[in-house]
Design a protein around this nucleic acid. Structure first.
Lengths: 158, 158
DNA sequence: GCCAGATAGTTTCACATGCAACTATTTTGC
DNA sequence: GCAAAATAGTTGCATGTGAAACTATCTGGC
């Protein structure tokens, strides 16, 4: 009879680990700044890419449902962490960017999150870390999770 | 200025990958048998461990909230995939086990899920797969995710 | 130019899940 | 032995999220 040990089953392990890591990490911005995971993803996208982005773009590159992004954007606008400018070329779309306040928060947060990431990976040697990232990349690629912006554009609305 | 590329940030990558893997995998049992992820976790635990288990135990070793397990158990009982027997030693607790129908479903499902897992990992060589699992194990251990049943017992109600 | 279909973003709805309160039982301290 | 605390499991409530419907705008075919 075929058996399956959940504790050795990769999908389960990934799910459990991702949940744990997410909880450990998000406490950093939830408790301190009152922003949740979708809001963090919006800020992270806007902070990393210097030019303004559409909500659609953020939705695609963070793989987060557009309604979730829409709600996060609403909240961030309310708290003046981001602002949006009309796009004269296409009036359906808004360009989003960090406000000065949002940029300050972003710059405060990033080093702390990077430190936390390093802490979590500190149980691996430099080589192990590199190999782990590579393996992750291969699995992502095989599941078609690596999107260039071209592919993102080609894809139907997510 | 510190920057952070979400696409290279381990917590985000893990979250995204886990979600994708979970969706890809759960379609196997959702579409065919109408059972959801928590229900699958109950079945997987009961099928793997031959002796009957309590809901509490399943909750701990799958790291799933006890109310979620409770609802999954209710549903599985309704569909006669599991049954529960009173525990004379402790009448608060019920021992859960697969029914014949549940065992049949389990035995049908397992090979297919294992095959899917292998498919997902087929982009890695045998050595890479082993190293990946080892790295995962180290991160889990450093986050205190590896529970023996002793530790589970020692831990407060989850 | 106009109409059909596509697209950006919002909102409504249904549903899943975590938390906290609850019931029923058992264990612990005295 | 009994009262207080702990524990197994259930349930009500609040919340977050995805699907789908919706509005507004744009694009392509003709």
């Amino acid at each position: 009879m075929a058996r399956l040990d959940l504790l050795k089953f990769m999908p389960f392990r990934l799910s459990r680990l991702a949940a744990e890591v997410s909880t450990a990490l998000s406490s950093e911005y939830i408790e301190q700044y009152g922003i949740d995971v979708p809001q963090w993803r919006v800020l992270a996208t806007l902070g990393f890419r210097e030019e303004p982005c559409s909500a659609q773009f953020i939705s695609q590159c963070t793989r987060t449902h557009k309604s979730t992004i829409s709600r996060a954007v609403t909240e961030l606008l309310k708290n003046k962490l981001i602002e949006r400018v009309e796009n004269a070329d296409d009036r359906r779309e808004f360009r989003l960017q960090l406000t000065a306040k949002g940029t300050r928060l972003y710059e405060e947060l990033i080093p702390r999150l990077l430190r936390r990431e390093q802490d979590m990976l500190s149980c691996l040697s430099a080589q192990e870390r590199k190999d782990f990232a590579t393996a992750l990349g291969k699995i992502e690629a095989s599941l078609d999770l690596v999107q260039t912006s071209q592919q993102a554009k080609a894809k139907a609305a997510y």
